[in-house]
Amino acid sequence: MSLLKIIDLHKRFGDLYVLKGINMEVERGEVVVIIGPSGSGKSTLLKCINRLEEPTRGKIILDGVDITDPKIDINKIRQRIGIVFQQFNLFSHLTALENITLPLRVVKKIPKDEAEKIAIKFLKKVGLDDKADHYPHQLSGGQQQRVAIARALAMNPEVMLFDEVTSALDPELVKEVLDVMKQLARDGMTMIVVTHEMGFAREVGDRVIFMDNGRIVEEGTPEEIFTNPKHERTKKFLSMIL
């Protein structure tokens, strides 16, 4: 059984019809990369998966449980789905360490000293344990994004969502973030990655999904999508960005 299954997902914002029936499955340990032009609904799809945006219609099944069920405790579900944002969204009044310990303490009720041990462990994992006491504004964009990844990982999620996490970074800072994500993929994390980094998609993705205008147009292995795309729109998109 797949870890995540999305069935006929629709999302409207008033007159704006953003997702028009998305169906997809993600296996445990799989890295799925979603590409497509801006406005195609990629970010909205990610935010529907942990219900930061409420789907208008459709089902999202996580490990056999329908998480669109209104009776479900969404705060419990969100602990199992980590997300990293384009704008980092680190808590600006807290240090790197506190950014990670706050949700551990508040949500998981882990005592302070234990939470700090966990935080240090994950800061090490992203290579920033020496920056534990720095505030976000004292860190570069790449460092902030790595702390944001560590913060999401520390909650011990089963799947990680990445929403254009390198798009707001200066070019020379992109690699350090992608390196962390590559390591994560090698460790076997289930990942859904919305990105414009085609090199990353090709190298790390197990499967690539091309979205346009609220629909999945085409999906396949990176090889299939990048060297032998079937649909005209996929070809056109790739020719514009490669």
């Binding site: 930061l52 705060n75 944002f85 969204n89 949700p103 998981k108 913060r151 909650m155």
Partner: peptide, 14 residues
């Protein structure tokens, strides 16, 4: 910024 609330909720906070 709106992203602060969004990030907090995404981590499971009420």
């Amino acid at each position: 910024p709106k992203g602060q609330m969004e990030a907090a909720r995404s981590l499971g906070m009420t």
